[in-house]
Amino acid sequence: MVSTAQIILLIMAIVAYFAGGAATLLTVSGHKPAPYLRWTFMVGGIVLSLALLIWHISGTGSWQPLQDSLSALLTLSILLAAFVAYVQLKRPIASLEWLVMPVVIVLLLMAGHFGKTQPTAYLPTAYSLVHRLFTFLGTLAFVVAGVAGALYLMSDRMLRARPAGGAHLPPSPGKFGSLERLEHLAHSAVIWGFAMFTLGILSGISWAVHEHGQSKLGQAWYFSPKVVLTMAVWVVFAVVLNTPIAPRLRGRKSAILSIVGLLLTIATLFAALLMPSAGGGGK
C-alpha cells in the first residue's frame, strides 16, 4: 500500500519537474532564470522519484524491480527523465524537454493513481519478471522513438514552413536537433525497443499459458485489448524497423509511424493498468 508520506514525496517530484519546465520556458522566452536552476529541478525530480522507488521497493520486502504499478511507472519515469538529462548534457536538443517531461509527469501522476488503487503485486513467476522487464524497457525505447519522430516532424515542418511573410523560419539547429540525428535516434531506439518488446511478448505468452497449456487470462486471452494493442505496437514498429529495406518509408512517414507506435504504446500501458482482468498484471 502506498503511504501518504510516499504520495507527498511523489507530489514533490512532480512539482520539481514542473518547476524545471517553467525554468526552461523562461529560458526559451528570453528571460534568464538563475543558472543551473532548471538542472537543479530536473535532477531534484529524478532524485525524489528514485528515493520514492527505493522506499517503496524496500517496503515490499523484495528487491525485484517492477513488482507493481507504482514501481513500474516510477522506473519508467526515472529512466525517461534520465534519458532527457543525458541528452541535454551531451548534445542538447532544446525541444526534447518540452515533449518528454510532460510524459514523465503523466507517468508520475499515473504512478500515484495506480499505486493507490492497484497496489497488488504482479504474479511473482520467473516468466512474468522477464516479461515485465523487457516490455517496460521496450516501452521506454518506443517512447524515445516516438518522441524523436515527433521532433523530426516538427523540424521537418519548420524547414518547409513559409509563414505569413512568405519567408522560411530562420534555421535553429539546436532547437530540434538535425533531422539526421533524430532519424538515427529514432531508428536506434526502435531496434533496441523492438528486440526487447518482442522478448517481452514471447515471455508474456509463455507466462499466460504456462500451466498445462491453459491461459490464466481466460480462453480468448489473445483478443484482450492489451494483447491486441501490444500486437499493433509490435507491427507498427516492425514496419519502422524495416525502413532500410523500404526506403520510401524514410523520413516523415517513418516519423509518423513512430508517433502512432508511441500512442499505441501509451494505450497499451493504460489497457494493462486499467483492465487487469484482461491481462493487466493483477492476480
Binding site: S155, L159, P170, P171, S172, P173, F176, G177, S178, L179, E180, R181, H184
Partner: peptide
C-alpha cells in the same frame, strides 16, 4: 552562412 545553418539542421555530420 544561412545555407550552412540549414544544412546543419538537416545533417548531423
Amino acid at each position: 552562412s544561412i545555407a550552412v545553418d540549414y544544412a546543419r539542421q538537416i545533417f548531423e555530420s
